[in-house]
Design a protein around this nucleic acid. Structure first.
Lengths: 119, 119
DNA sequence: TAGTTTAAACTAAATAATTAGGTATATTTG
DNA sequence: CAAATATACCTAATTATTTAGTTTAAACTA
């Protein structure tokens, strides 16, 4: 899957959050200094070309929505991370974070239990 | 900490791997088509500016080595990832991966044990 | 229906990242 | 010491990304 650039990712995050939005609504969510309408419009169209976004006609304009799910993109990005920085080993990654966060065995076990609850 | 661009990251990975290297040795490690000497040399100098790399004089040239440790950089990158894609929750991230990889409770527990062994 | 408004599409300018040519300098070699 | 060679540094060309002005089309309003 294609990588998102910084500007593209910022807008995808908003779309993932809002589920769907037109350009004005996206700008609404952006921090000041807010970019020009056309700037956002262009990026959304690039995202559409890359296949990350689709739209439906809504009144006089377009309502955009994510075509690639956030979990799909993050999953791929994490895989890359694990490959590049933990020799492809998920175990190493977890170990690393448990140490780094000084997480206790109890805490990790509680995560375990939570995961099990959902089955 | 500053982010690495794609080209920069590729070279950092090699330096982290080799511990230290001159430009020729870096190129050695790169897949064909190998870039021009000057291309790599420039990127290394950018990395030096950004504070990721330092060098020592060695014979007629420079031997470059990482100034920022791989774990430091990956740790920061992972934090960003967790923030952007898992609401800052390390738990969510682990849960997500355990589900995704269809990892069993036993397996996660064995990670736990391994981590404990090291104490 | 004609004028006005709104938003997308097109286009191009500005900025950032990547790649590499040329030059100067230092070191080795004959 | 002089020539050849290797390497860093300076610079510029190319390519990718970001930003935004202009144009076009649709649809709303009087």
């Amino acid at each position: 899957m294609k990588q998102l650039t910084k500007a593209e990712e910022e807008i995808m995050q908003i779309l993932w959050d809002l589920k769907e939005a037109n350009v004005a609504a996206i700008i609404e969510e952006m921090p000041t200094p807010k970019p020009a309408y056309n700037t956002v419009s262009t990026i959304v169209r690039i995202l559409e070309n890359k296949g990350f976004v689709d739209y439906k006609k809504e009144g006089r304009g377009h309502t955009y929505f994510p075509k690639v799910q956030k979990t799909k993109y993050s999953s791929d990005s994490m895989d890359k991370m694990v490959n590049d920085y933990f020799n492809g080993s998920f175990k190493s990654m977890v170990s690393f974070f448990v140490k780094k966060k000084d997480m206790s065995v109890d805490e990790l076990e509680s995560i375990l239990k939570e995961i099990n609850k959902e089955h």
